[in-house]
Write a protein that binds this DNA or RNA. Structure first.
Length: 513
RNA sequence: CGGGGAGUAGCGCAGCCCGGUAGCGCAUCUGCUUUGGGAGCAGAGGGUCGCAGGUUCGAAUCCUGUCUCCCCGACCA
């Protein structure tokens, strides 16, 4: 087994952070842009994002939410209206202060002091405030509610430390914003969005997650309650992959989103917001990637099957290409996961082996290498990306009769989707410790700096305020954070290992990205 | 924002300490031979050494500033 010559130069075991960077580079997903914290998303990475967009957008629309678009720039005064919101974002904001450049006399350009804006504009870090302003115009009567809006957009947060896809200064996302007549209706929407994210993550990304409520210290600035989906990466750390917030009436008060109820009284709306971003792609890399690069779940793979003709640059190529084209045509008539198969015939010149390793690193689910003998004998040579190596350390090609392969291809694509999800779920569940009942046990578990043991699920008394701050500080000493209170957890048992009070619920505790 | 490391050909790097006019591997191109599983040999092309100043007869190399990236911390829907 050790003779396997992997496609990447860094393994996950040797250096997980370097491996993550290497996958992104080698799979040609994204690259440096030269602008601090901002990345160029290359076709393969953007193709995955387009798949995520398409499948998520269908779910959003199915829930009756309509897409719209709001400005990139937000007047500073809009933002200043909700105090907690300002506090949460003030330190990481890009601000536009001028509208013109002039020559500095040294061959460069500087902002023209004469062209200073009356009121600075901030580049949106999130759009609650602008969308709130629109909602206050759109909502007049109880008949206008609920108001369900979403936008696909880019946002900017000037983070101190950035990592490709996981935390970039600019990122792409969708943000849903809704207004409701009362708390109950808004909570239903908040939890609907959370469940949409949970099922999307499991079904489309094949990434198992726990959906639950964040502790009060982790709430979105200005929110009354914040919910998240949390995924476990292969290094055992947690990734918050999506959030849904119940905002109460605070934002409605700031933006004056009011309606006249059935009794003729003015009332404040209850609002929600929810979003997922390009961070999900980082989650897919760290959930499914291996030492040969990315493995893309078929549901979000820009191409699910790549056909590589073994071109010889001779007279036989024409017949070989005709066979491959005919194979492609037969495949795209089939459907898997509810959509036609996405199949690419890679006719570019070059050696088939080199092209093969490029596709392996990109993680395309099925690779077909077709030579002259396959064409003559009505055969295909099939390589499953999720089962790349044989026991003897050779690449795991399976020679199959063309007809047999065609009959099974769609099922095989669906099997890869299932298999990636099953593997990720098994790995996650094997790395959750549930037997911790005291702080001393928790500390002992994380005592070894070299070996991070994964997540801990434990029971606590859900302290708040100063008492919670103490708990957070104790966990911080172990580099741990509270991820969420899973909605489907077993009932809490015993006493809280932090406060000694009777436990009321279970939480996940983990290191996080 | 603090500490550490780095920026030299498309990619990965050496050269820097001790200034003398640009090098290696992979990739690319050409030719020949191979080729059913990550080919071999020979030859060729490609770089204002991150950027801006300074010192010097001369700077990839020394000095100052600045931008960007990576790691650790702080911060962080």
């Amino acid at each position: 087994m050790s003779q396997i010559r992997h496609a990447l130069s860094v393994t996950r075991d040797a250096d997980f952070a370097a491996w993550y960077q290497d996958v992104i580079t080698e799979a040609e997903m994204a690259e440096e842009s030269g602008v601090r914290g901002c990345m160029v998303i290359r076709p393969w990475g953007y193709g995955i994002w387009e798949r995520i967009q398409k499948l998520m957008d269908e779910r959003i629309k199915a829930a009756g939410v309509e897409n719209c678009y709001f400005p990139l720039f937000i007047p500073l005064s809009f933002f200043a209206k909700e105090a907690a919101h300002v506090d949460g974002f003030a330190k990481e904001m890009a601000v536009v202060t001028h509208h013109r450049l002039i020559a500095d006399g040294k061959g460069g350009l500087v902002p023209d002091p004469e062209a200073k804006l009356e009121e600075p504009l901030i580049v949106r870090p999130t759009s609650e405030t602008v969308i709130g302003a629109a909602m206050s115009r759109w909502v007049q009567s109880w008949r206008d509610l609920p108001l369900l809006a979403n936008q696909w957009a880019n946002v900017v947060r000037w983070e101190m430390r950035t990592r490709m896809f996981l935390r970039t200064s600019e990122f792409l996302w969708q943000e849903g914003h809704t207004a409701h007549a009362d708390r109950a209706d808004a909570m239903i929407e908040t939890l609907r969005a959370l469940e949409m994210y949970r099922s999307f993550s499991e079904e489309a990304l094949a990434m198992p997650v726990f959906a639950g409520e964040k502790p009060e210290n982790e709430r979105f600035p200005g929110a009354v309650a914040t919910y998240s989906i949390e995924a476990m990466m292969q290094d055992g750390k947690a990734l918050q992959a999506g959030t849904s917030h119940y905002l109460g009436t605070g934002f409605a008060e700031a933006a004056e989103i009011r309606y006249q109820d059935r009794e003729g009284q003015q009332a404040l709306c209850h609002t929600t917001s929810w979003g997922v971003s390009t961070r999900m792609i980082g989650g897919v890399i760290m959930t499914h990637g291996d030492d040969d690069g990315l493995r893309v779940p078929p549901a979000i793979a820009p191409q699910q099957i790549v056909i590589l003709p073994m071109l010889r640059e001779d007279d036989g190529d024409a017949a070989l290409l005709a066979y491959c084209e005919e194979l492609r045509a037969a495949l795209v008539k089939q459907s898997a996961l509810g959509e036609p198969l996405r199949v690419l015939l890679d006719k570019r010149p070059g050696k088939a082996t080199q092209k093969r390793w490029a596709w392996v690193k990109k993680g395309v689910p099925l690779i077909l290498e077709i030579g002259g003998r396959d064409a003559a004998g009505a055969m295909v040579s099939v390589l499953r990306r999720d089962r790349l190596w044989r026991e003897d350390a050779k690449v795991n090609f399976a020679a199959q009769a063309r007809e047999a392969f065609l009959a099974a291809a769609a099922a095989e694509i669906e099997d890869i989707q299932r298999s990636l999800h099953a593997d990720a779920t098994a790995r996650r569940d094997a790395n959750i410790e549930r037997g911790v009942t005291s702080l001393a046990e928790l500390e002992a578990l994380f005592a070894d700096e070299k070996r991070y043991p994964g997540w801990v699920e434990l029971s606590w008394s859900r302290p708040g305020g100063a008492e919670l701050e103490e708990v957070v500080a104790k966990l911080k000493a172990l580099k741990l954070t509270i991820r969420n209170t899973p909605l489907d957890a077993a009932p809490a048992t015993g006493t809280c290992l932090f406060t000694g009070q009777p436990a009321v619920e279970r939480i996940f505790v983990a290191r996080a990205y």
